[in-house]
């Protein structure tokens, strides 16, 4: 895989060059994800801000210490979220807690296989790909992205042709182009947000 120089990624600029703008952008992107995730976990609104700030703080502080050889960023990310939730609840005198039907405890060592981790994983990936899709949307005019989204929804080709008024060839070409653009965007966001 291409070894993208970290100077050209958001996280690289933040960590290696201490670029304040890069830090700000990174911070807000992670923040959005954490809120998104905590809402998914049905954290009560009362606790949401405190918990999110705690997790974010921990994440940003430890970003530099993240070591790729010990596991994937996404696993590390879910570990951080899990730890933050627990720490928060420990303050509230409880060693484990249940959120949205998930049991969260420090004891679950094999983290990558717990349901919660699978969920966090999936949410992170979904978050990234949706972010990418939003960026891609600006690169195309007309119905290109719309046609692509219909295909993602599993709509049959005939329905797409009918709804967009495009020819079969155009649908095919546009989908391919949007997909290529999306893939580049995903790649770029991953390299921006996940230290390598």
């Amino acid at each position: 895989m291409a070894n993208f120089d970290t100077r050209y990624t958001l996280i690289g600029r933040a960590l290696n060059l201490n670029d304040q703008d890069a830090w700000n952008e990174l911070h807000s992107t992670y923040e959005k994800f954490i809120y998104f995730l905590l809402r998914k976990l049905s954290v009560p609104e009362n606790d949401l801000d405190d918990l999110a700030q705690q997790a974010l703080c921990y994440l940003v502080k430890n970003l530099e210490k993240y070591d790729q050889s010990k596991g994937k960023f996404r696993n590390w990310l879910s570990q951080i979220v899990r730890t933050s939730v627990l720490m928060y609840h420990r303050k509230n005198k409880s060693n484990s807690t249940k959120l949205a039907g998930y049991t969260i405890s420090l004891e679950s060592e094999d983290s990558s296989h717990s349901d919660l981790d699978v969920l966090i994983h999936a949410q992170w990936e979904s978050y990234i790909s949706k972010l990418a899709l939003e960026r891609v949307r600006n690169n195309f005019r007309g119905v290109a992205v719309e046609a692509f989204e219909m295909a993602l929804n599993g709509e049959p080709k005939t329905a797409i042709i009918e709804k967009t008024g495009l020819s079969e060839g155009s649908v095919h070409t546009l989908r391919r182009r949007v997909k290529r653009s999306l893939m580049l965007e995903i790649k770029s966001i991953i390299s921006d947000l996940e230290p390598s």
Binding site: M1, A2, D115, V118, L119, A122, E125, S126, I128, S129, K130, A132, L133, E149, A151, L152, N153, G154, K179, L182, M183, I186, K187, I190
Partner: peptide, 29 residues
């Protein structure tokens, strides 16, 4: 287990992400 609430749309999107990041090291080229 994947969250059953993840829609077809989200799943297809994540598949694309997997295509980019995991399987094929040459995919980016």
């Amino acid at each position: 287990m994947a969250d059953p609430s993840i829609s077809h749309f989200d799943k297809a999107l994540i598949d694309i992400l997997h295509e980019v990041s995991n399987e094929d090291p040459d995919s980016i080229e």
